[in-house]
Write a protein that binds this DNA or RNA. Structure first.
Lengths: 220, 220, 220, 220
DNA sequence: GATGAATGAGGCTTCATTCAT
DNA sequence: TATGAATGAAGCCTCATTCAT
């Protein structure tokens, strides 16, 4: 706080015309917090994280600027909340997909992994990039020390243990898979084809073929 | 690239009461632009792209603020120049490495590609990330329409044409290779092992084995 | 700095209509700094320190808001500068007045001290109060560990040593004198009579009589 | 006055993720107003008037923010109430002390005035300064048109009328006394000696001696 | 070419106060 | 009475960029 600059409101008052009536408040308590996050996500997508101000967000969410700070201590806190929400959603979707296959169906699960991850990512690729690339380094660990990579590495290890795959370094393979998948998704998006289902299938197939081939045991 | 330079201290001049008049420096005016780029690169590395102002850059480069705009039309233009410089350097190194192998030595060239790319990237991974991740979306096309990927795709295609490899989608494979390599590099860096030569070798081997295995022709 | 919120100017650009021509800058270099201090002083006097914003100040000084921060690192820094200027001026005036009397003219010098201090204070009493009362405690030491009090205490001590006055605690007396004088000045100002020369004289007389009487040696 | 109270810790509740619902407290509603004043006083002392928000106060008083406005029309009103409470307490203490002396014991009463005023002030000097210096000018009239000064002036006048003292301008003398006493109190506090009983006595003696000497009738 | 004072459009936060419940 | 979510006006400060010298 400043040395002086006494609390406002007092001397600012001057004339008696105290603030005009505001528009109705206290709408349905449908989580103002979630509404702010949604609005922010929409704007980030539309004009970029950097170009979106708190003002933009509150305007879009139809609340007063000050309301933002009722729900988030700072603009950065919103970013973090959005990231967490993204990762949680991603993991949930992939988990669910894998859970629908039998444990012993190794190739089926690997194929499902690629297909679901690709789908999930492409469905909100731009959002993902906004959230995780436009951020400082510190925040990107979420994607590096990723539960997703860990999960994938486990799948590979188990397949290797089961004798269906060969891989000297399961974790490395998992990383290559994850980032390879990511690169393809980016590429598709760069061609404005993220929505192209056939293209997605082709990508998933390429990934599956590439890695199942790469992990083909030497002695069949 | 000469990212490593004098390092004239932290340059944070504490804001003295009255700054002494800067002696008119009569260096080769040719070098000014490069000096600004070097200073910027140093600062970006040290405190991040977003946190570095034009003022910081000119102060570090020991020129007046206005001078910046003599050499760059805008702050963003400097960023672009830095990116270009990075990509050029990367390509040069990889090109040189490949050029040392016989054209027919496909596996040798692929192995060389991985090893060199990994080395080059790891040598300046932080800079790379600053330059290509902390940027708005518009600027990241450099990485998508990447000369590096194109070059790699060509290598794969030629190998396929020569009958030594099998790949239904050479470009996709190239993308997977590039991003897989990238992911491993990031991972190594995340473990603060970027300088570990043995680890680098292991990574390059994994990449080579994975993809040469993935591209193994069905009928040998 | 924020995690993101990339430097402005870039994406804010949007349309090509880059900032409109500004009004002529680079006026006479008649110390913009001093002009800002003067403007601030005027406003502080008129509406109070707390109620005066940086914006008000720059508007009054006819410079852009940003210009303020070219000359002062913060609003508080301006306050400090203003205080220093005030104390310096006060001391100078009183010193000059005392210097015009012979050293041996003890009563003359005491009388001169009261008259000059009262005058100086009353001439800018409101300013003084703004500057030193509306401030946090830390800043008020300027008035406590005051060069003025010290100087006054010295005068008393010397008079005592010379045998013309009696005072067991010269420093205490000096403090009482200083604050008593201050209280009378405040009182006069509270009656909107700060400009009343006759009243000032009466006050100075009262002070002189009171204290010369209080310090009358027991054995004349 | 009950400035010293429970002292429930620093009250800075760290802003937890979700605040637990405050249990509806059913205290004597009568005490609420006083509790708010006490909390405010504690906070003002601890962090300054300007740095203390209504929110801080209600949090410390363990009531909802809105409750504040049930008891005070504005933040300023609280300040005024606090000032009034202070002045009342001061006068009461001094009155009580004077009442213990015989009316005709002029010097005894003057001495008692100095001693009591000094004690009272020093006991809560910081609070006094917060309340009366950190305020805008408008509010400081309480100290100018001071009941304390008025009371003191009356004492002097009566003493003069009784022929025991000489003073051309009783009111001026009273002002000088009051502010001189104040200055000495500040000085003692500035040396962190407010609690030093011996020092207080010395100050009171100095004041009494100074002024009884100053008011010594010319013809004894 | 160089310079650096000046600009002014924002950005982020804070907080006194209101009012539906 | 009591509550606390919501408000929105202001405030301070940053910084890319311009331009007279």
């Amino acid at each position: 706080m400043n040395a002086i600059r006494e609390r406002r409101g007092a001397e600012t008052a001057e004339a008696g015309e105290r603030r005009p009536p505001r528009r109705p408040r206290r709408r349905m308590p449908e989580s103002r917090r979630g509404e702010l996050m949604d609005a922010a996500e929409r704007l980030f997508l539309a004009k970029g994280v950097a170009a979106t101000s708190v003002d933009d967000i509150t305007t879009a969410a139809q609340v007063a600027k000050g309301t933002f700070y009722v729900y988030f201590p700072s603009r950065d806190a919103l970013l973090a909340a959005l990231q967490q929400r993204f990762v949680d959603g991603f993991c949930q979707r992939v988990d669910a997909a894998l859970a629908r296959r039998r444990t012993s169906d190794w190739n089926g699960r690997l194929r499902a992994w690629f297909a679901t991850a690709l789908d999930t990512l492409l469905d909100q690729l731009v959002l993902h990039d906004m959230l995780f690339h436009e951020l400082g380094h510190d925040h990107r660990d979420l994607i590096h020390d990723n539960p997703v990579v860990t999960q994938l590495a486990a799948l590979v290890s188990q397949g290797v243990a089961a004798g269906v795959w060969h891989a000297a370094e399961p974790r490395y393979i998992a990383i290559i898979m994850f980032h390879g998948m990511h690169g393809l998704a980016d590429d598709l998006a760069a061609q404005a084809q993220s929505g192209n289902k056939a293209a997605r299938k082709r990508l998933a197939d390429t990934l599956f073929n590439t890695f199942s081939s790469a992990m083909r045991p030497l002695v069949p």
